[in-house]
Amino acid sequence: MKHPLPLIWRMIPEKYYLMGSHCATCKNDFFPFRQICPNCRRLGKVSEKRMPTTGTVYSFTEVSAPPSGFEFEVPYPLAIIELDNKVKILAQIIDAPMEKIRIGSRVQMRFRRVGDDDEESAISYGYKFALIEDAASSAKTDKPAKTPKPTVSKG
């Protein structure tokens, strides 16, 4: 789906760094940005706030039948992510085989192209999430190249 350029531009703060909002009255965070706090309404004191960029997979699916613009990405994992401030957000999970994605997996925000690209229009960038891999887990290795063993000096 082609999105109009001004829409893509307006969404840069939320798409690039999760700009949402915070209500000083009820102390709740919201994403996407809301001008009106649904808890406090006129008593709310709402200001812009960046959401944390790490969180946990709350639910996930693998999309096999895409909307137009995502044909070349199927199948792609899509998740509801509970950010570390408890705010939930929907995003694609990248760089992970499905079998590694679990409810509860830790994830981190990444910067990617999002959606359609017709090679001529302005590019839409935004958030996706990648699993935070622990040092123990590495690639499925079918005869990997021999990488040198580094000596990490620690401070």
């Binding site: 999105h3 999309v63 895409p66 613009g69 792609y76 999002v114």
Partner: peptide, 16 residues
């Protein structure tokens, strides 16, 4: 702006 934009179809939302 926050679901379809990221490739969330309706089956995907109900799948979640």
């Amino acid at each position: 702006e926050h679901e379809l934009f990221f490739g969330a179809t309706f089956p995907a939302l109900y799948a979640l």
